[in-house]
Structure formats: structure tokens, C-alpha cells
Amino acid sequence: MNVGLYHYLLLGAILFATGVAAVVTRRNAIGVLIGVELILNAANVNLVGFSRFSGGLDAQVFALFVIVLAAAEAAVALAIILQLFDKRTDVDVDRASSLRG
């Protein structure tokens, strides 16, 4: 079987859908973050796929930047989660509700 652009996009779409499902259903903040990573990598698969089939390296450079930014974002998010964990001892996003109205 030849692997074409279609297959890259399908893989990207499946990753995106999985990521969104994780974000929507997970109540633990770490679980939500894992979902976000899946969404970002779905975009990366798309970018690399388009780059492979339409020529041009722009999209591959874009994908490299996304990897770096995903790491930075995850580091900041984990630091914030740890800070909340210090005071709450749980990181359930539904129970973070002292601010409402």
C-alpha cells in the first residue's frame, strides 16, 4: 500500500479527535494536558505530511517550533499544577471552583 497525503491527514484527524476527547472527558489536569499534547502532535503530523507532498521546508520548520513551544507550555502548566497541588492536594479541574459567578 502506498502511503499518501490522505493517510497523513487521517492520522492527524484521529490524533486530533483523540486529543479533544481526552480534554473533554478527563477531570485530572494532567490528563487534560496529555490531550493537548495529542492535539499539538495532530497538527505536527499534518504539517509534516503537507510538507512531504507539496515540497518546501517551511512546514517542517513550523513543526519543530511547535515541538519546542509544546515543551515550554507543558513545563509552565506543570509548574502551575504543582503550585495548586501544594494547597489543594488534588488537581481535579472540576473542583477548582473557589472562583465562580
Binding site: F16, A29, A59, I80, K87
Partner: peptide, 26 residues
């Protein structure tokens, strides 16, 4: 801390969606 958590979680999800849209636009 709670404000920061909400900001980062919502932000990460919406910027992820934006990135996926950008990859399709590319």
C-alpha cells in the same frame, strides 16, 4: 493558582485547536 490553572488549561486547548486549523490552512 486556580486562576492560573484555568488560564493555562483553556489556553492550551484553544491554542492547540488554532494550531490544528493553521496546519490545515497551510
Amino acid at each position: 493558582s486556580e486562576a492560573a490553572l484555568k488560564y493555562v488549561i483553556f489556553g492550551a486547548v484553544s491554542s492547540g485547536a488554532m494550531l490544528y486549523g493553521m496546519s490545515l490552512l497551510y
